[in-house]
Lab assay of single mutants.
Amino acid sequence: RNRTTFNSSQLQALERVFERTHYPDAFVREDLARRVNLTEARVQVWFQNRRAKFRR
């Protein structure tokens, strides 16, 4: 699988949700994935990586 590149509008939407919660539930992830046209799995991994970055 190739690395996913996120465009600025996708990142903006992802970061907005991250500000609200670092652990979005499945419903939030599904909705977000639909809105930014990504798979739920990509959204889930983005949050895992974003939390790791946040802890650094």
Rank of each mutant, 00 (worst) to 15 (best):
R3Q: 10
R3P: 11
R3K: 08
R3W: 12
T4I: 05
T4S: 13
T4F: 08
T4H: 15
F6C: 04
F6P: 03
N7T: 15
N7D: 12
N7G: 04
N7I: 06
N7E: 11
N7V: 05
N7R: 04
S8A: 14
S8I: 09
S9E: 15
S9W: 10
S9R: 10
Q10N: 08
Q10C: 02
Q10L: 04
Q10R: 04
L11C: 07
Q12K: 08
Q12I: 11
A13P: 03
A13F: 07
A13M: 11
L14Y: 03
L14Q: 02
L14C: 06
E15H: 04
R16M: 10
R16E: 15
V17I: 01
V17P: 02
V17K: 06
F18K: 03
F18W: 14
F18N: 00
E19H: 15
E19R: 06
R20F: 13
R20A: 12
R20C: 10
R20Y: 09
T21A: 03
T21D: 10
Y23F: 07
Y23C: 01
P24A: 03
D25R: 00
A26E: 13
A26N: 04
F27V: 14
F27D: 13
F27T: 14
F27W: 13
V28N: 01
V28C: 13
V28S: 09
R29N: 00
D31A: 10
D31W: 09
D31E: 12
D31F: 01
D31V: 05
L32T: 04
L32I: 12
A33W: 05
A33D: 01
A33G: 05
A33Y: 03
R34V: 04
R35T: 10
R35Q: 12
V36I: 13
N37F: 04
N37K: 05
N37Q: 07
N37H: 07
L38M: 08
L38P: 00
T39R: 03
T39V: 03
A41E: 14
A41P: 08
R42Y: 08
R42M: 15
V43H: 00
Q44C: 10
Q44V: 05
Q44L: 13
Q44I: 05
Q44M: 12
Q44N: 09
Q44G: 07
Q44D: 14
V45I: 10
V45W: 13
V45M: 09
W46H: 05
W46S: 05
Q48L: 11
Q48E: 14
Q48G: 00
N49P: 04
N49A: 11
N49I: 06
R50T: 03
R50H: 00
R50E: 14
R51L: 05
A52Q: 02
K53R: 11
K53N: 12
K53M: 15
F54R: 03
F54T: 01
F54V: 14
R55Y: 13
R55I: 03
R55K: 06
R55A: 15
R56K: 15
